[in-house]
Design a binder for these strands. Structure first.
Lengths: 126, 126
DNA sequence: CAGCATCCGTGCAGATACTG
DNA sequence: CAGTATCTGCACGGATGCTG
């Protein structure tokens, strides 16, 4: 063993440092369907507050998984998109979505609704 | 639309309800290598407190992804293992582990260590 | 060994108001 | 439109001590 700057017990923990935030997987998941503006994300995630959204976006940006594109214009226009690195999370995120789908079906039968992931039906056969 | 007991914006959220706890993915990950006793989990996750460990285990049990096996003996012996349903999370968990590995490499180069996931090296070629 | 009970602090996250 | 700034509360999680 050498001097370490950082010690993990499991590599899973390293992943959680990046996508472990309360809304991060959800935000990233939506971005796997293309770049989104601030308001679009708010519409897709109605229950999140603006503060939380901005906060989580900033952290994701710092980790290098998303890119913030600010067009200098009035009114302001900002778009968020996955970086190449961020795209490497797609498999995990879509797997989480598909698992969630089957979990909902198992737990609630038909007594639950998922508002905004119709796209996945086109991507996979579910 | 009909009356719903539950509404999700994304199925990802349903997944997060199950594995979204601070330590849940880590605990579940360890269990993908076989049943573990309370103390074994504590050794594998040194920084977790007993309280948190118990709490997270209970919640995982309630969700039906792990099973608590209590042998009625003195001293007590309790084992935790994945249910069949819990096993369906394996792909996500191992994907998270592998992504974490590459993330650590990318972010820290050699200046970080992962203590306890040698098993994965045998399972996959990494 | 496995775990519960209790106390306690902090930090996460909500609500509201304001800005370039 | 896309944010900041500030105040606030409560629940999450840590530390400690006790139990079957």
């Amino acid at each position: 063993m050498k001097n370490h700057d950082k010690i993990y017990n499991t590599a899973v923990e390293a992943t959680l440092e990046v996508i472990g935030g309360k809304w991060k997987p959800v935000i990233l998941f939506h971005l796997t369907f293309g770049k989104k503006r601030n308001n679009e994300l708010k519409s897709l995630i109605p229950v999140i507050t603006q503060k939380m959204l901005t906060q989580q976006l900033r952290e994701l940006e710092e980790e290098g998984v998303i890119l913030r594109i600010s067009y200098n214009q009035v009114p302001p226009k900002v778009e968020y998109e996955l970086t190449d690195y961020g795209w490497s999370l797609k498999e995990i995120l879509h797997l989480m979505c598909r698992w969630g789908d089957s979990h909902i079906e198992r737990k609630y039968g038909g007594r639950a609704t998922v508002l905004s992931n119709p796209q996945l039906k086109d991507v996979y056969d579910i």
